[in-house]
Nucleic acid binder design. Sequence first.
DNA 1: CGTTGGGTTGATCGACCTCAATAAAAGTGG
DNA 2: CCACTTTTATTGAGGTCGATCAACCCAACG
Lengths: 249, 249
Amino acid sequence: MFDLHADLDHKMPLQRGDACLRGTSACETCGVRELSLCGTTGGGAAAALSTASKHFAIGAKHTLFEEGDRATAVYTVVSGSLLFSKILQDGRRQIIGIALPGDFIGLTLPESHAFTATALDQVELCRIDKRAFADLLDRSPDLMRRLHAMSARELARAQDHMMLLGRLHSEEKVASFLICLQARWARVKGASPRLDLPMSRQEIGDYLGVTLETVSRTFSKLVKRKLIAIIPDGIRIMDAKGLADAAGL
Amino acid sequence: MFDLHADLDHKMPLQRGDACLRGTSACETCGVRELSLCGTTGGGAAAALSTASKHFAIGAKHTLFEEGDRATAVYTVVSGSLLFSKILQDGRRQIIGIALPGDFIGLTLPESHAFTATALDQVELCRIDKRAFADLLDRSPDLMRRLHAMSARELARAQDHMMLLGRLHSEEKVASFLICLQARWARVKGASPRLDLPMSRQEIGDYLGVTLETVSRTFSKLVKRKLIAIIPDGIRIMDAKGLADAAGL
DNA sequence: CGTTGGGTTGATCGACCTCAATAAAAGTGG
DNA sequence: CCACTTTTATTGAGGTCGATCAACCCAACG
């Protein structure tokens, strides 16, 4: 079982059932195709992507790769979600991004990874060898264009996140976080007032640049004001308008 | 004089002598060519870039464009530097990037600008119409690759900046800022312990997510510890090692 | 059922913000 | 070139938001 993914750059040992290579994937039937890089790509690139890619899965808490690891592949998230994080020597951590289904991992085609990617839950991924992908890019300007469009979106998100980290108060941070994440899930699942949060208070805090206690207190405050309700493994947005106000929008 | 740049999207009225279109630029003699997107591009793309681009300049404090403006062009910084900033309704501002000579403005080819670009000093720019640039991109995979490489670099910088904003203390922020900026200028000018800072304490604070008073106090602290010296319009790094320690590296 | 890992809540502390006064520098006009 | 204003930087005093430290609760799990 372990031998099967010897070529993957996971850091944590995989447990039984946690990961499985399914051989060449069927892009035609892929649920995130329209959301992802593959999109409506026609022509040779679609077929080439299909043959070059392999579906597999990793379990919650497992890392797909760690900061500093040599990058050997790029990925598309098929289902589940991941965190991207950087840590300082003394343990301070900043979560710099969240990947949802359809998102591409490896936008910058780095030599070595600039951050750690950790699965939040059971995550299905579509893996493409970096070299093979680079070759594909060279042969498909259309694919390159799409890759760049995704990078552009990611850069815009990073810029918004900088504003959040640098200039918002904790309540605005939390409210913005919930609204943004809901909006992103809406693109995948369709809109819903219910928002799954498969992450700990600590992880939310590390995403927002505050402590877990502050996250917890802020959640309580928002609950008391009936803007949200806390439900198992997530929250429900009770007053979207009020929450937007709290976010300062 | 004003009529000459009617097609530019500056927001502040230009004063006499502040800007001038020089007609088609000479890429062959451009000082930042190797640093910039144009790079060592051979073939048709180089010539096409040369004919499509126009040199001009804007003065300190003037905006090249503002957040929300329709984006009609992309630019390469030839000399001088600019700030990219976003503001909230109540005036809180976050500076999300600094552009130095060789940097490309418009990486994401946005419909409308996601941030304001403000000249820090006299800035020479090379302008290319966005549509013309998009056409060029379509015809030159090499140019597209370069553009993507620059986006990747910018994204990596944004991620480092998120770590700084979210997790560093004010002293670490200031020290990191000085070290990073020095390193970036070194690529342009060559290494020097002397660092020009044509920006106010307020602007530095808005870049670091602290107040101008905190910037001023931190500078004073670093001076007292003989890590830096404050000189007219800049600082001098007196103890690079000590400063790196202060940055937490 | 004890243990363990999250989550919540309270009490205290401190880093940074805010407000304010002063100082220094940069314009401005005579 | 020098008064005068305006802007920017520095420094101090005091306040506050979020961090830290700590207690407690609860659900999951061996």
